[in-house]
Simulated assay, not measured.
Amino acid sequence: MSAGDATALDSTSPGTGPRAGQPDARVPDARVPVEAPTPPPSVAWTVAGLLLMVLLAALTRFLELNVPVWTEGTPLARIAKPVEFPVYAIALGLLGNAVLVATNLKDKVAAAFRTELFIKTGVVLLGASVNLSLIVTAAVPAIVQALVLISSVFLFTWWVGGKLGLDDKLRALLSSAVSICGVSAAISAAGAVQAKREQLAYAASLVIVFALPSIFVLPWLVDLLGLSPAVAGAWIGGNIDTTAAVAAAGTLAGEDALALATIVKSTQNALIGVVAIALTAYFAFKVERRPDAAAPGVGELWRRFPKFVLGFLAASVIGTLYLAQVGSDVGKPVITVANDLRTLFFILAFVSIGLELRVKALRAAGWRPVAVFGLATVFNLVVGLALASVLFAGFEL
C-alpha cells in the first residue's frame, strides 16, 4: 500500500481516528469559534412595531375620512374624494419605513410586519361580502367574461414574463394579480407556488402603482367612449385589480356602473380558489418536480394549497345563506361589521407592505416586471372592453 493510499484510508475509513495533530471533524473543535444562533426578536420591540402599525392604520383612516372634507370646494376635491385607504396606507408605510431605516430600528421591529397574515385574514373576510345570489343576477355574462378574461390575461402575462426571462414564481404572482384581483390573488398564488416575500411585496407594489391611476383614467374613458352603465361597470370590474379601486372608479362612473362592477369583480374574486388549485398542481407536478422524483401525491398538493382560500369560499357561502335566512335588513349590518374588519386588516396589510418594502429588492428585480405588468394591463383593458361591449350590450340592471 502506498503512502497516498494509507493517507486516504486514515482520513476516510470507518473506525479510524484522525491523523496525529489534526482535530477530529466528528468532534466540535473548541479552537474554532461557533457562531451563536440569531436571537429571537424581542417581545418589547415586536409590541413597539405593532403599536406603530396601529398608529399608522388609525392615521390612514383619519386621512381617508378627512382629506375629502378639507379639500371640499378646492380644485383638489375631485382627486381627493375617490382616493381610498390603500393610497394613504402605502404612503404612510413608506414614510415609516424611511424613518425606521434612518434610525436603524427596522430590523428590531420587523417581526410585527405580518403582511401575509393580515391580507389572508382580509381575504377570508372579503368572502362574506361576495353574495353568491347577487352574482346570479348577471351570472351568465359575468362568468363568461371572468373565465375568458382571466384565462387570456393570465396566459398572456405568463407568456410575456417568460419572454422577458422572469422567475416562474414571480410570473405566477404577476399573472394572477393582473388577471384576477390584485393583491388578494397574488397572495393566493404566493401560497400555491411558495414565492419569496420580496416577490410578493414587489407584486403588491405594482398592483397599487397601476391601480391608482386607473381609478381616474377608466371613468374618464367611459365618458369619452360614451359607454352604457352596464358596459362601463363590466369593464371597470373586470380590469381594475383591487376591490377598493373598483369601488372608487365605479363610484366616479355612476351608481349603476358601480353595482355591475361589484358583481363582475365578485365573480372574478370567486375564481381565486380555482386558480390557486391550478397553480399548486402545475408547480408541484412540472416546475419544481425533479426528473427522477416520483409524482407528488394528494398530501403534497394539500400541503402547498393556500388554505385561507377555503376560508374565503366558506365565508362567501355562509354570508349568502345567512342573508337568505334572515333577510337583508337584518343581515346587512352584520355583513357591514365583517366588511369593516376586512378593511381594518387590509389597512394593516398595506401599511405593512410599505414598512416591509426593501428598495434593494425592487432594484434587483429591475425593469422587466414593470414592463410585463404594464403590457398585461394594456392587454387586459383592450380584451376587457371588447368582452364587456359584447356580453353586456343592452343589459338592464
Rank of each mutant, 00 (worst) to 15 (best):
D10N: 13
P23D: 07
V27M: 05
D29K: 00
A30E: 14
P33C: 04
V47K: 04
L51Y: 03
M53T: 10
M53C: 12
E64A: 11
V67M: 08
T71F: 14
A77N: 14
F85P: 12
P86F: 03
A89E: 03
A89R: 02
I90D: 03
A91P: 12
G93S: 08
G96Q: 05
N97V: 03
N104Y: 10
L105S: 08
D107H: 11
A111D: 08
L117K: 11
F118L: 06
K120Q: 14
K120C: 10
T121G: 11
G122H: 08
V123R: 06
L126K: 09
A128E: 07
L134C: 14
A139F: 14
A139H: 09
A142L: 00
I150G: 06
S152E: 02
V153E: 10
W159S: 10
G165K: 02
L166V: 02
D167N: 13
L170S: 04
A172P: 05
A177H: 04
I180K: 10
G182I: 00
I187W: 04
A189Y: 04
A189N: 03
Q194R: 15
K196A: 14
R197P: 05
A201E: 13
I208N: 11
A211M: 10
S214K: 00
L218W: 01
V222G: 01
L224R: 15
L227D: 02
S228Q: 09
W235R: 11
G238M: 12
N239M: 13
T243P: 10
A245C: 06
V246F: 02
V246Y: 00
V246E: 01
G250N: 01
G250P: 00
L252C: 07
A257P: 11
V264S: 05
Q268P: 04
L271T: 08
G273I: 02
G273N: 02
G273T: 04
T280L: 07
A281K: 12
E288V: 08
A293Y: 02
A293M: 05
A295E: 14
W302G: 06
R303Q: 12
F308S: 01
V309F: 05
L310A: 06
L313P: 05
V317Y: 13
Y322I: 03
L323G: 12
P333G: 09
V334H: 14
T336F: 05
N339D: 13
N339Y: 07
N339R: 11
L341Y: 12
F345W: 00
F350V: 15
V351P: 09
V351M: 04
E356P: 03
L357E: 00
A361W: 00
A364K: 13
A364H: 11
G366N: 10
G366V: 04
P369I: 06
G374W: 00
N380A: 09
V382A: 01
G384F: 01
L385N: 06
